[in-house]
Nucleic acid binder design. Structure first.
Lengths: 233, 233, 233, 233
DNA sequence: GATGAATGAGTTTTCATTCAT
DNA sequence: GATGAATGAAAACTCATTCAT
C-alpha cells in the first residue's frame, strides 16, 4: 500500500503503470503485424525490419519491447493459444451434459481457428524455431487446451456414456486435431465445405464413434441436426 | 524448379542413360542427407554446405543436380509422399470389402508415418518454404494420397454400408489427418500409446462413426480386435 | 567539443552562476559513473545508457550537459590528468634539491596512479577515440604533466649534477613512463612488488643512471634507503 | 609415411597442404590490411567491411579464414609479439657478456618497435577487446619476451656485475617498457630524437643505473659511444 | 530542467550460389 | 563431372542521439 493509496484506482499508478500499459500496447502492435507477415510468408522469410515497417514503428522500438526475434514468434503463438484458453471454456460454461459440453467446446475451438486459421498454422509450423524452454511453454499450453476438452470426455466416460475401449485422452486429442485440421487442410477443405458444415459433420461423426449405443439416442437431436446435403464430391 | 524433380528415371540408353542413372544416384544421396538434417534441425537451420558434408559431396555437385536449395526440400517432401503413394495401395490390394480396405490403407499410412515421423513433419512444417508451383505439386500428391482412401469410402457409401449424411472426401481427409496426427502429436501421444494401440483405437472409433448400425456387426471382428485396456490417463 | 570541457567553474552570480554550479555537479556525477564503467569495460563497451543508469540520471540529462559520448571520455581523461597537475606540484613544494624534488614528484605521480590505475589506463587506451582537437588538448596536458618533472631535471642539469649526454626532457619522460608503467604492467608487476617497493626500486635506479659520479654521494641516503631484500625472482 | 613418400618434398602434399598455404597467405593479407586500419583508426572504429575492402577481398572470405572480428585483432597483436620473439633472440645470439647481450636485445626490441610502432600501439590499446583466453595468450607472449631480457640481467647479476639491490625481473620490465615507450610517446619523442639517439640514450642511462661501479669501466666504450649533443630542449 | 521512448544508421555475421581449376 | 574458395546481399541486433512531454 503506497501513501497515496486513496488516490489510486483499481490498479497501480505512476510511471510504472504507464510503462506497463504502453508495453502492452506496443507488444500488441508488434504481434499483430508479425502475425500477418509470418502467417503469409513464414517466420524465416519475415525479417524484423518487415515487421517494424508493417507495425509502423522502427526496429529499435521492437527491440525495446522484445529481446529477440524469437520472442516475437513466441508471442504470436501464445496469442492464439490464449484465445483457446479463454473462449473455449466460455462456450462450455453452464452446459450440464458432458457430451454436449464437449461438442460446444469443439465448436468454439473450430470457430476460433476459422477466424484465425493462419495464426493457428503458425503455431504448428514455426514452433520448431523456438528455443527449448519456449517450446516447452508452448507445449504446456497446448496440453492445457486439450485438457479443456479432455475433462468433458472423462466426465462422460465416468457417467458410463462412452465406449470403454478408447482412451479418453486420445479422444480429446482427436477432437483438438480435427479442430486444427480446419487450419491445416483449409486450402483443401474450404473448397467444398463451409465452417458450419465442417463442424456439423465432425460433430456428428465423433459422437457416433465414441458414445455407447444405448446412450446414443439421447443425442439424436444433435446427430440429425440441420442436415446439409451430403455432396458426393 | 524442374518439372521432373522426382527421383525416378527413365530407361533410355547411351550417354544420356548414364547421365540419368548418375543423376538418380546423386539425388538419392543428397535427399538422404538432407532428410536427416532437415528433420532434425529444420529447413532454414540446415545449410547447403551441411547437406553436402553429410552427403559426402561438394556443394558444387549438389548444384549440378538441383538448381536451388528449395529443390532439395521439394525432393525430401516428395520422397515421403511417394512412400504413401507406393505402400498404401500395396496394403489395400486384394481386399474386397471397402471398409476393410479403408482400414488396411489407414493402417499402412500410420505405419509409414511411424517409421518416418520426422519426415512427415517436414512435409507439414516446411512446405511453406516452397515456391508456388512446387507447393502446387505437393498439394496434388497429397490429394492423390487422400483419394486412395476416399475411393474406399465412396465404394462403401455406394454399397449402402455408411450412414447417409457423410461426405466421403471429408471422411478420407479425417483418416489422413489422424494418420498424420501420429507425427504431429507424437511428442504427446507416444507417452501413453504404442503405434499399435494408436492405430487400433482410431480404427475402432472411425468405423463406428460412419458405418450404418445394421452393417456394423459385419465389422465386429475388427472393432473388438486384440483389445488393450483403455487406461484412463 | 566545448573549449572549457573541464569540471572547473567560475564564480559569477545570478542565474548564470546557478547554472554553472549545477553543470559542475552534473558533470562530476556523470564522470564518476563513466570512469568506473569505462575503466572496467572499456569505452566502446560502455553505452551512454549504462552511464546514465549508473549515475542515476536519464540519458537526456547527460546530453544536456555534454554534447556527445566522446565528451564524457574527454572529461574522464582530463579528470586524472588534473590529478597529476594538482598533486604532483603539491608534493614537490618546498624541496630545495632538484634531484630530491624530482624523486618526490615521481613518488607522488606513482601514488596517484596506484590509487587510480584503471583511470590511468583509460587515458592510454581510449585517447584514440577522441577527435583531433580533443586529443590535442589531452596531449597538451600530458606534456604539462611531464614538464612538472622536466623542470627539476633541468634545474639539476643546470647545477651540473647530471651526466651531460642525456636530454633532460627524455629523462623526465622516462620518469613519467616508469610511473605509468605501474598502471600499464600492473597485472604483472603487482604479483611480486608492492607500490612502495616499486617506487623505491625505480627511485634508486634512475638517479644512479643520471647523476654524475661526483654528485652521487650526496644522494647516498636516498639510494640506500629502507632497503627491501632483492628477491631474485 | 604415405605410399608416395618418394615424391613428396620436405613438407606434406596434396589438397590439405594447398589449403594450409592458402590459409596462411589469406590470413597475412587480412592481418596486413587490418593492422593498418586498426593502427590508424582503432579496433572499434574499423569495421570488418573496411578490412575486407582494404585487403581486396570480400567479407565472406575473411570469415572463411577467421571466425570472428576479434580473431583478426588477436592475429594482429600476435604478429608483432612474434616479431619480438624472433628477432630479439637473433640479435643476442653469440654475444658473451650479459650486459652487452642485454643491450643488444634492447636495441633490437626498439628497432622492431620503430619499424612498426603503430602495431605496437595496437597491442597496448586494444588488448582489452580480447576475450579472457585470448588475452591470456597475449600476456603469456609478453612475459616470454620480457624473459628474453630478464635472463641476461640474471646472468649479469650472477656474475656479480650488478649492484646488489635490484630485482632482475623488474629491470627487464623497465627495458621492455622503455622500448615500448618509443611507440607510446612517439608523437612526443620523435620531435626531438631519432631512434638512434633514443636507443643510445637509454642504453647509456640504464647500465649506469644497474652496473656496479667497479664493472662500469668495462662498458665505457658502450656508454661513451658516438655521442650526440644533448640538446636542452 | 529532466525524462526516457523512439529512431535508424551501422555493425557483425551467415549462407545460397557461382565459377575457375 | 567434381570441387570448394570466393562472393556479397541480407539478416538480427545495438546504441548514440533527439525531442515531445
Amino acid at each position: 500500500m503506497t501513501a497515496d493509496a486513496g488516490l489510486s484506482g483499481s490498479q497501480e499508478e505512476g510511471p510504472a503503470a504507464i510503462r506497463a500499459v504502453r508495453a502492452k500496447w506496443r507488444k500488441r502492435q508488434i504481434v499483430a503485424a508479425a502475425s500477418e507477415l509470418i502467417e503469409q510468408h513464414g517466420f524465416h522469410e519475415t525479417s524484423v525490419n518487415d515487421v517494424a515497417a508493417k507495425a509502423g514503428v522502427s526496429v529499435g522500438t521492437i527491440y525495446q519491447y522484445l529481446p529477440s526475434k524469437e520472442d516475437i514468434l513466441l508471442l504470436v503463438i501464445i496469442d492464439i493459444l490464449d484465445q483457446y484458453r479463454e473462449r473455449v471454456p466460455e462456450a462450455m460454461v453452464g452446459i450440464e451434459d458432458p457430451v454436449e459440453r464437449l461438442l460446444a467446446g469443439f465448436d468454439a475451438y473450430c470457430r476460433i481457428i476459422n477466424e484465425r486459421h493462419s495464426s493457428a498454422l503458425v503455431a504448428y509450423r514455426e514452433s520448431k524455431s523456438l528455443a527449448k524452454d519456449a517450446l516447452g511453454k508452448v507445449m504446456e499450453l497446448e496440453i492445457e487446451t486439450t485438457d479443456l476438452l479432455a475433462s468433458c470426455v472423462r466426465a462422460a466416460a465416468d457417467a458410463g456414456a462412452l465406449v470403454a475401449d478408447i482412451q479418453p485422452s486420445l479422444i480429446a486429442s482427436d477432437f483438438v486435431m480435427l479442430a486444427h485440421m480446419w487450419a491445416l487442410k483449409h486450402w483443401h477443405l474450404a473448397e467444398t465445405l463451409s465452417i458450419d458444415e465442417y463442424v456439423e459433420s465432425q460433430a456428428r461423426l465423433m459422437p457416433r464413434g465414441i458414445v455407447r449405443g444405448d446412450s446414443l439416442e439421447r443425442y439424436e437431436r444433435l446427430l440429425d441436426g440441420p442436415q446439409h446435403e451430403a455432396q458426393a464430391k
